[in-house]
Design a protein around this nucleic acid. Structure first.
Lengths: 139, 139
DNA sequence: TTATATGCAAATGATTTGCGTAGTC
DNA sequence: GACTACGCAAATCATTTGCATATAA
């Protein structure tokens, strides 16, 4: 396991993500950070976003659209996306309420659709894991 | 509004999607359809998947991972993805049950995470729409 | 000191598009 | 016959990677 270093670039990216709730894409972060570090490269932004999300300091959001988005809020939460202006809002909801309740109570959006994806181990893989104890769950 | 034609290619793609529940990617569909129509091109597959999903005959799934997936099941439903073997299963669940209930009852997966995204109009866009009646909600 | 991170540019992978021809309606 | 769709190849867009140099620990 290799050591991670805190560099000016990584620091700036992390700060940028922590001071906004707008879920920016990699190139939006690049443009913002460039005002502080004009020589930073887009590749460095991508590399740092990757290491930051692997170490749990930010979240990589893969919620549709051509580009991934990044979130400084690492607590588990949901999202609402506006189909007109493409803004994305955070939604903090308990797992004990129903979808209908969420639509009605959780935000002032006019909801027209939703998508739920569960992640985990399918019955077959679950069984195999319990037998051989393999632990190669991908990032 | 332009007329859509039913071609052998489009027909074959639609049939392929209707006879599987494996949520194939565009290039998987290309490989399968190629056994019936050896001269079909990948571009044609992409174009037809696009028109089929716009006309509501199939669903384009943007649920993470490098490639989009396509689904012949057009009724509203959820998905579970295995983090080990990458299979995707369908989940038919009422919107009146809670997330916890879904985790417990809806599939034999060992659930380790989930993602919920709502789509609609944010408060600002909702307000603007109600005033001027614009109806340009994107596909 | 020394290994990790950077900047740059080229490479990759998925998807889209332009164009001339084929095929559907 | 008119006009949409096709096949092919090149273009595009987001993201990743190789490499020589800079820099954090």
């Amino acid at each position: 396991m290799s050591k991670k270093r805190m560099t000016r670039q990584k620091q700036a990216i992390l700060e940028e993500l922590r001071k906004t709730d707008s879920h920016p894409t990699a190139d939006e972060i690049y443009e913002r950070v460039r005002q502080k570090l004009p020589h930073i490269s887009l590749g460095t932004v991508y590399r740092n976003l990757e290491t930051l999300s692997k170490s749990g300091l930010v979240k990589k959001l893969d919620i549709g659209g051509p580009q991934k988005r990044f979130d400084g809020e690492v607590e588990s939460h949901y999202h609402a996306r506006c189909l007109n202006c493409d803004r994305i809002d955070d939604l903090f909801v308990s797992t004990s309420v129903s979808m209908e309740d969420i639509f009605r109570d959780s935000c002032d959006y006019q909801i027209t659709g939703h998508q739920l994806v569960l992640f985990g181990l399918c019955p077959e893989c679950k069984k195999r894991r319990n037998i051989n104890g393999t632990k190669r769950i991908q990032d």
